[in-house]
Each structure stands twice: as C-alpha cells, then as structure tokens.
C-alpha cells in the first residue's frame, strides 16, 4: 500500500466518521428553521426552502420552553456551585489533611461507586416526599450536592500540592480555613474548571431523577419538558427539532469553549484512577 493511498484511507475514514457523528446535529439545526410540515416530504429536504424562526417563536410563546430553559439554567447552576464547594473541601481533606481512618473512609467511598444510583431512587423519593421537596427545584438539587466522582477528582489533583507550603502557612499562624481559601483554592483552579463543566453538563443532561421528582410542568427542566412535548407534538418534527436545538446548543457551546478542561478531567477520572 503506497503511503499516499494509506493517507487517503485514514483521512477518508475520519471524514466519514465525523460526518456520521455530526450529521444528526446539523440536520436538527436545519429542520428547526423549516416551515411546519416541510420536513415530512419525499425526498426529505436537507435545507429549509425559506428559513423561518416560526418554530422557536412557537416554542417560547406557546409551549413554555422559556420556563424550561430557565429551570434548567437555575437547577444546573445551583448544583454546580454547591457540588463544587462541597467536593473541593472534601477532596482537599482526603488529599492533604491527616486524620484517623482517612484511607479506609476513602476506600469505602470508592467502593460505593459500584452501586448504581437507581438503587437509591425509590427510598430517596419517599424521603424527599417526607421533607416536602417533591416537585421543587430543591428536590433535584439537594441529592446532587456532592459526588464520589467529584471528590475523587479533586483528591487526585490536590495530592500534588506540596506539604511544605501548607506547613509554612501553619507556622505563620494561618488558620485552616484561611489556608484553604488563600493558598489551596488558587492552586486548584484548573480542576475547579474541569469539575464545574462536568457537573454542569451532567446536571443539564440528567433525565431519570428529574423525571421522577418533578411532577408539575412549572418545574420541568429541558429534557423532561422536551420528552413531554414529544409525546404531545409528535407530528411537528420542525417544532421538536427547534426544541432539541434549545436543549443541546448550550451544553455543546460550553463544551466547545472549555474542551481542554473537559477532556483532561475525563482522563484524570479514568485512566489514572
């Protein structure tokens, strides 16, 4: 096989793969600008004849998409901020502060990773019902305020902080809280960005738990709203594609902007684990 031919094969396959990966997303974007009914034709059109924002207007004016979008932003941001704070504190403690039973406790947490989250969901629903949190934003936010994966990620990263640095600060009389805020947090900035994107994307895309705990439309996040819209408006493919665009574009944009941090976190959380 000549090198030129081999190069053509490798790049051809990559281009084909990229086309398969991107086609559904580009098609979604294109159909979202079509007039109602336009996509249901043979041959299926690739581009809108007369691009229109009709579907988006319909979504936000009549289908309540604006509310879902705000709910998703609110819930995902709250989860990100709280989980970031709690996981950073715990991950740092596991990495750098000495206390009895540290390794055993950490091993137990890692061991808990084998339990799928769904096992906890039924009693969790009853617990939140008892606390009056079913069908509220808090019902989605509260159980997601800490994660073993997040703690693990921070611990891996924080272990590289030199002990001498912390000791020097202690000798200077700085309290543990001040050391954490003024010395440790600035050093953890890269992992903070990574963890923030991971948490935000996971919260935004989460489906099963919000589906269970959010019973009223006024609290629906985008995936739940979209799924319920799909059951009502199945025939309106153009409207549904606009809804998918609104759901997918924010996370896709976030990923594109902060890709480096996301991929680093993915590797830190898996290979080096």
């Amino acid at each position: 096989m000549s090198p030129r031919f081999a190069r053509a094969v490798v790049n051809g396959l990559l281009a084909g793969g990229a086309a398969v990966a991107l086609f559904p997303l580009l098609w979604m974007l294109s159909v979202s600008f079509m007039a109602p009914g336009e996509a249901s034709a043979l041959p299926p059109p690739l581009l809108p004849a007369h691009p229109t924002l009709h579907n988006y207007r319909e979504l936000f004016v009549h289908a309540g998409m604006g509310r879902y979008l705000l709910n998703s932003l609110l819930v995902s941001s709250a989860i990100t901020v709280l989980a970031l704070a709690f996981n950073l504190m715990a991950g740092y403690a596991f990495a750098k502060l000495r206390f009895a039973g540290r390794e055993r406790l950490f091993q137990a947490l890692i061991g808990a990773l084998v339990i799928p989250a769904q096992v906890a969901m039924l009693p969790l629903f009853l617990l939140l019902k008892y606390l009056g949190l079913v069908n509220s934003y808090a019902g989605v936010v509260v159980p997601a305020m800490a994660s073993v994966f997040g703690i693990f990620l921070v611990r891996q990263y924080a272990r590289a902080i030199p002990d001498e640095l912390l000791e020097a600060a202690r000798i200077d009389g700085a309290g543990e809280g001040r050391i954490f805020v003024q010395i440790v947090l600035p050093l953890l900035k890269p992992i903070m960005v990574t963890l923030a994107i991971f948490t935000f994307l996971a919260a935004w895309n989460d489906f099963l738990w919000p589906l269970i705990v959010l019973t009223g439309q006024e609290h629906y996040t985008l995936p739940i709203g979209l799924a319920s819209l799909a059951r009502e408006h199945w025939q309106d493919s153009e409207l549904m594609m606009a809804g998918s665009v609104v759901t997918v574009v924010p996370v896709l944009a976030l990923f594109l902007a902060l890709q480096r941090y996301y991929l680093e976190g993915l590797l830190l959380g898996s290979v080096k684990g």
Partner: peptide
Amino acid sequence: VTTVVAVAVI
C-alpha cells in the same frame, strides 16, 4: 456531550 433525550428525538 449532547442531551440523550434531545438526540433520541432526532
């Protein structure tokens, strides 16, 4: 990174 529900609809 896309949302399962949205791309399943596509």
